[in-house]
Design a protein around this nucleic acid. Structure first.
Lengths: 183, 183
DNA sequence: ATGACCATGTAATTAGTTACATGATTTG
DNA sequence: CAAATCATGTAACTAATTACATGGTCAT
């Protein structure tokens, strides 16, 4: 049982979902493709941590709905007492930034403008998520509490990254102006 | 050539290093173990992107120093014009937080206290890194500029995560007090 | 003496991506 | 009419981790 499996159990402990839906639901926390999730769900069902049934749909393809079993809930509760691995971040932009001295300023500006737009979008997304969470339920013990603090974190992080992009773009702008003044 | 390889080229474009040192230097941007880096370096040397020589040491084990070749620099410069992949973040704490409603409050407090300590340490680390960068060199075009903006980002992110931990711990504290008042 | 740091490497396994395969419906 | 969304799955490959293997120095 890897971390992703426990993540899927956690999602299914809230509500049953299709593999496709689970793939979408887990994206904010753990980026995994459907080709990794489908075989995992099969193996978890073999171990009786999940059960499933097919739902016929007329307009869309049929779907297989997974639900967590009591054995699955036990596994999930067990996991809650295990040590937590430190986060793994793999950001190509950081590696690229490290070699920025090899780039022209115009190319650099484009890079951070692009990232900036991404974080503006992300910020809007998490703001809308937070709007959808009823605040009176945001207390420890409720499922909404988790969603609330996670969405808040994602929003805070997006805001910080956005601020950083703006700051970098400002530094790059200053440099361009100084270069223009010198010529 | 994967992203990690280009990251290693970027590090070596600044200064030559041993595999062990590269493993340490790349950690802030890309978490990779020595067992992944050593074979990669070998393959990059085979492709003539790197050259190497052994340095005898008396007190410590001998080491193999890698340097980037002109072909390696060309590859690196080429990469600078390629599209940048979005960042991948895999944080077990997020998955765990999602299932927090299954935990007791004491266990939850411990989890965020632990993470808090980690970010306090991280904040201190990046503050010391920033102290070590001469500010007059922090302009676009210098190698120091990259280090400066990357360390600033890491500091900003650590501060945000720290703020979030404090906020969560405050919410958990409020809950404990409310529970005590009710009893 | 126990563990951490330095230093390099390989072998076995698991995790994750890309590509293949299918096919209807909706939106621009 | 092209692209995106919904929906499931497998096959081939690459990336990454864990474990094995060695061995000296230094600090607690």
């Amino acid at each position: 049982m890897n971390t992703l499996s426990y993540g899927l159990l956690g999602l299914l402990a809230r509500r049953e979902s299709s593999g496709y839906e689970l793939m979408l639901r887990i994206q904010p926390f753990w980026q995994a493709k459907h080709s990794q999730i489908y075989p995992l769900l099969s193996r978890m069902e073999e171990k009786a941590l999940l059960s499933s049934y097919w739902v016929q749909q007329s307009d869309k393809p049929d779907k297989k709905i997974y639900a967590i079993t009591e054995a699955g809930m036990d596994k999930l509760r067990e996991w809650m007492h295990q040590p937590i691995a430190p986060s793994v971040n793999k950001d190509e932009l950081s590696l690229r930034t490290f070699s920025l001295w090899l780039s022209e300023i115009g190319v650099s500006v484009d890079i951070y403008e692009e990232r900036r737009a991404l974080y503006v979008e992300k910020k809007r997304y998490y703001e809308s998520i937070l709007d959808g969470i009823p605040k009176q339920k945001c207390e420890f013990g409720n499922k909404e509490f988790s969603s609330y603090i996670l969405a808040t974190k994602a929003l805070m992080m997006a805001e910080t990254e956005l601020k950083w992009c703006d700051w970098v773009l400002d530094l790059l702008g200053q440099h361009s102006m100084a270069a223009a003044g010198e010529s």
